[in-house]
Design a protein around this nucleic acid. Structure first.
Lengths: 208, 208
DNA sequence: GTGTTTGTTGGTCGATCGCCAAACAATAGC
DNA sequence: GCTATTGTTTGGCGATCGACCAACAAACAC
């Protein structure tokens, strides 16, 4: 268990955080190993030894990203008592994250690698799986709402509603990327929540 | 005016169409000049001579893309008599284009280059301008609706509504990219249009 | 025909890509 | 001390990137 051999001279967690910042700024294909090595303060060979390939590093980066940036929207979905409030709070948490002062204005899951060279197909599919997970998380919350007696919907209506809010979440990333402010996104969220009241049997509350 | 010198042995329009197909499949940075030369059936030097740099070629490709793929949604916005029908028809035309059987399932304006290397900043900004144009086109249509007495909204409400539907349009690209079918997108559009009736003073019609 | 203009071919440019082998350095076990 | 193990550095791998000539080919004007 104890560390045999020469101990590592850098903190892998800190280095991973540096890698996250760079991948976030430039996307997957826009970030080179040389750029990463410089930002992480180690040689590219050390990256390879500690994290594996560029793709392996990116997957570890996305795990960190999901555990940090992805948590607030997930928590909102999980902890808000009413289903309507949960969806609204998730949208707001997303808007908060993608308009922060110290980070790029978009969600990595959505825009870090939507298109690219054929050899990076696996990376794109990896992110697509994550996005399908977003949809599934929303849908699960709606299912719970039905179980709670909080929401009335057919299975088809449930799928539609979940996909609709997933679409909005993902569209927000493009908006933020193009310069929309947190206030701009709030107006979008207000519009998106207006559909809720029409589409569900939930009483319209001005809950925040 | 007449062509002096050796005549061109390829059709620039056809070559541009080939370039469009490849850029559409792989995005801007994912497509190399060598790939383009092969697909266009000419040497890379001929690309340079006829179209300029890779970036120049991409701008010409996007002009073609906008004139062809972009036209149906634009026409829907322009020609539908009621504002509500115009917005809905635009969403449907978009959904049609990004789920076609013979083309990649996304909108190039949205996903061909959302992130990337620093040296391609100009390309990203070029596409961002196009997306801001989408928003402006929607907003202009809403303004016309107010002038037509077809829609009642404050200036702020108008901005919000326009940004909201721009967000949905852009979110649809991610959905299609992740495998959503035309039917799936239709359910999203139905949800998105449900907000219309709540947010405007337009009578709710089941117009198609 | 000759000269001019333009397009194409084939090749080269320096830079960069992701990746890795060999040499070196620093620890633990003995 | 010595050996084994592990991590880091150096240096460069072969391939590819976008860009761009120089040389050749095919049309024009004359």
């Amino acid at each position: 268990m104890a560390s045999r051999g020469r101990p590592r001279t850098f903190d892998p967690d800190a280095a991973l955080r540096q890698a996250l910042d760079l991948f976030w700024e430039r996307g997957y294909e826009g970030t080179s190993l040389a750029d990463l090595a410089q930002a992480m303060g180690i040689a590219s060979a050390s990256i390879y030894a500690c994290f594996g390939s560029k793709e392996d590093l990116f997957r570890k980066v996305m795990a960190l990203y999901g555990a940090t940036e992805g948590e607030p929207p997930r928590r909102a979905l999980r902890e808000e008592p009413s289903t309507r409030a949960a969806v609204q709070a998730m949208l707001r948490a997303t808007a908060d994250r993608i308009t922060g002062p110290d980070t790029p204005h978009y969600c990595m899951l959505v825009l870090a690698a939507p298109t690219g060279a054929v050899e990076n197909h696996a990376v794109r599919e990896f992110l697509a799986d994550g996005r399908r997970g977003q949809y599934a998380a929303i849908r699960d919350r709606l299912v719970r709402g039905v179980a709670d007696g909080d929401l009335t919907a057919t299975p088809d209506g449930l799928d539609a509603l979940a996909r609709y809010y997933a679409t909005v979440v993902q569209g927000l990333s493009i908006q933020a990327r193009d310069g929309a402010t947190r206030t701009d996104l709030e107006t979008v969220i207000t519009c998106a929540m207006a559909a809720w009241d029409t589409l569900t049997s939930t009483p319209s509350r001005a809950a925040g």
